[in-house]
Design a protein around this nucleic acid. Sequence first.
DNA 1: CAGTTCGCCTGGGGGC
DNA 2: TGCCCCCAGGCGAACT
Length: 285
Amino acid sequence: MPEAPEVQNVITYLADQLQDAKIVDARILHPKLAANLPVDAFCTMLKNQHFRKFERLGKYLHFQLDDLDLIAHLRMEGKFLILDSMADVDALDPVKDRKHIHALFTLEDGRVLCYKDTRKFGRMYLYPKAANWQALPVLANVGKDALDPSLTAQELLEKGKKRKIPVKTFLLDQKAIAGIGNIYADEILFHAGISPATPACHLDLEDWTRILDATRALLNRAIELGGTTIRSFSYGDGHAGSFQNELAVHGKDKEDLCKNCQGKIVQTRINGRSTWYCPNCQQEK
DNA sequence: CAGTTCGCCTGGGGGC
DNA sequence: TGCCCCCAGGCGAACT
């Protein structure tokens, strides 16, 4: 599932490919994808707009067009593909690929920006251009980005104080800190040496400092390596990231040992989410 | 208000 | 091999 590092790689790739590209035709094939407008209005509005800016907040992608803000969330396995022509779209395997393409944006140069999403969980939102896109309604429950330089351990301490939920659940709360998903939450807590089950309100400033430091180090490293491509998530064009090779705990099985203590990595469930950790290096408080 | 559960989806994996 | 069932997972809505 795409988290901040994967979304950052997607937005960087799209910026490289689509800067100032003009949409000449838009089609939405799965009505729920256009989450805040009827499909017809959504498609009509996109026509003749150019891609001007490409940004990310948490796991959301933001495209600034001439007169509109387009916001997308890939959820579990949404992906953007850029094909050279509509003929290439028609040439896709109808069952494996074509049926999972739910949006087609034809560009002036003939290329087609396709949105593909097997599980249909992803969503797109379209708004008249706002003075501050980060204040748009769809982002009302999104807090500071995990890589926002202004985010401090003190802020996390203040927020965490009021929460009895496990720290892992806190890290997954996009309002508390945006962009962390199940994979990086496990990795961050391993590197910070904190048990994922520890109630958020038990952590002190030093703990939050280690969490924030680990968050920055891991997310930046993952961005450098092109993100994590395992199981369900891959980029649309077939290229892969390589951060999965550096995962210390997430998704490990019984034979894999802790990098620090050579002890066994344990898999458990926290608030319904699969969770991996080293009980020896990550003691509960 | 904080926390928990449910529903959305589909392919893939486990069980037999 | 084939079939069935269940699970994964982010997020908002509904509920306690």
